[in-house]
Amino acid sequence: MAIIETKDLTKIYTIGRKRTVVGLDHLTLEIEEGELFGILGPNGSGKTTCLKLLLGTLFPTSGEAYIMGKTPYDVSMKKEVGFLPENPYYYEYLTGRELLIFYGKLFDMDKDALNEKIEELLNLVGLHNTQKLSLRHYSKGMLERIGLAASLINDPKILILDEPTTGLDPIGCRDTRNLLIQLKEMGKTILLSSHFLSEVERVCSRIAILHRGLLLALGRLDELMSKYKSSNLEDLFVKTINEYDEKIKSQGVAQ
């Protein structure tokens, strides 16, 4: 059963009075419960637009999006979702611990359960010693890690992560990768948007490749690699994008 679903999801941005840019073009995909699904694409391909539409911070031009069968504006759905934005910005006047308390309270967590969860998460992301430091003193990697802890505060069924390894050092990247595998084993559904193809290749079972808002490839990683005769994800990614660009170019020349 699909736990995340989009049907012809389209977003057209209006820039100025006349110019329009297609952010996402009739995206239809289904993500099953317990999957670790990778959404890939170059800059401006529509990855973040897709996540924002799923989370209800953007409104679609047409099409539908559902998480657990509920629309992105359903507050009860949000109780089951954890989200880590790209380049996370948090309240710099709060300490790491206060940030987790703030978000935990929004999930109606009681004090004891919240404190227990915070201890667990601070240890998990290795920020126990800096929990009383205000976030303005955190490095980019530390912000990424506190963001990851914040996304897990409600013990979500679904995790939506936008570039979770940006700003992390190699050890941080490895820890995050291991954590994702661990979370998948715990039965969480994870939607991972990333530029780091090697990370995606190691953890994701299925992927979608977006380019210029269009879905170019969707399926199991091994099946797609075999279809595109690629030895690794990077090769697959480049071939898919180039193939599309050349097709568009040749169509333009023909016209």
Partner: peptide, 14 residues
Amino acid sequence: EKRTIYTLLTKPIT
């Protein structure tokens, strides 16, 4: 401006 709203609105608030 600081994009904190982006995370905040994904929490269960209207």
